[in-house]
Design a protein around this nucleic acid. Structure first.
Lengths: 188, 188
DNA sequence: CTAGAGTGGGGCAGTCGTGTTCCGTTTTGG
DNA sequence: CCAAAACGGAACACGACTGCCCCACTCTAG
């Protein structure tokens, strides 16, 4: 088992599982869940804070990479969003801790990185508003957050068994793009 | 200052403020923020868990009452949702901890009460799908969660200063009802 | 096969939060 | 004005978690 990166990955994965459902869980539990000694955990992540940071950064990297691989800057905006949704949603409910983990809010740089990761999405939405495919009476920042919120909601809802994760991409896109009403109507 | 309910309210309010930005904050901090001795805090909430419970139940009560006061069962569904949004959103970002607080997920009854509070909204959506004002190709459970997620997103976004809370109701309704696209389009 | 990296367990000191008790002080309400 | 309620400060024991250290064990690469 002398595989450094393998052990590191195992630890991060275990940490996600444990901390997402009990953010105050002890490091002993994390190590135990990873099937690793607490000593080893400390070897990779000297302090709890460093573990959390590594965890969040890893998650952010995954999201950023997924978004990038969907090429949100190419083609019709709505198609682009569809691709982003299809690649990001399967990353799974385990990432919902990104939103819940309290330590994050105390680290400005992590919030910044979160929005940096969403930057390509923001650009796409801006492009959509410019070319007329998206309504331009909504602030871009709001649209980005609402979109991210919809994916988050999908993760949580799927996590509680109220929908199937495989249906989530369609539900998210239909809801966020067209809304829940049947016909255009004044909602002022 | 010998006003039991006043002190209790002060403590709950302080707890919301403190715990929403640092869910692991010590009770000393909560008491201090409330301008109250830690002894007094323990007099009202013997254990930390009881404080959290009281906190969540109080928040749930507020939401449930706000929803009820909007009479979601009356009139056109979309108008009803508009009223619910207008009354719930102003409750403020402080309630977003309802979603983040990890202790909640370990208490099944609190999750149940959360969905009980949303029951009237669920009924309204079901009614809307039946009378043709809402599209019926989305599961009611998903629509409820997506709607709640939009409000949550609005709270968070407003909390970070990306939008004004006063604009939130309109943004939420426009987005969730009509979507972000300009024209109906196939998003399969 | 051997050297060395990787691992695991045990233990230990230090810190922090909690829950409780006791008692003096302040405020309220009759 | 006085009794009762409420409050606050201090101190205490207890437990949990953390970070660290040492040493023996085990795989693996060369």
């Amino acid at each position: 088992m002398g595989r450094p990166d393998h052990t590191r990955r195992t630890l991060l994965d275990a940490a996600v599982v444990v901390l997402s459902k009990e953010s105050a869980a002890s490091l002993s539990v994390v190590a135990e869940t990873a099937g690793v000694g607490r000593t080893t955990l400390h070897r990779y992540f000297p302090t709890r804070e460093l573990l959390i940071r590594a965890l969040v950064e890893d998650a952010l990297d995954r999201v950023a990479e997924a978004i990038a691989s969907a090429h949100p800057g190419e083609g019709p905006v709505i198609d682009a969003l569809q691709r982003v949704t299809d690649t990001v949603v399967p990353l799974g409910p385990s990432l919902s801790f990104l939103h819940a983990e309290p330590e994050i809010y105390n680290a400005r740089d992590l919030i910044r990185r979160w929005y940096e990761a969403l930057e390509p999405v923001s650009d796409a939405i801006e492009r959509g508003q410019a070319d007329g495919s998206l309504r331009d009476d909504l602030p871009v920042k709001w649209v980005v957050d609402a979109y991210a919120g919809a994916i988050l909601a999908a993760w949580d809802t799927a996590d509680e068994g109220r929908i199937w994760l495989q249906d989530a991409p369609r539900l998210v896109m239909t809801t966020i793009v067209h809304g829940i009403a049947t016909l255009p109507r004044d909602a002022s």
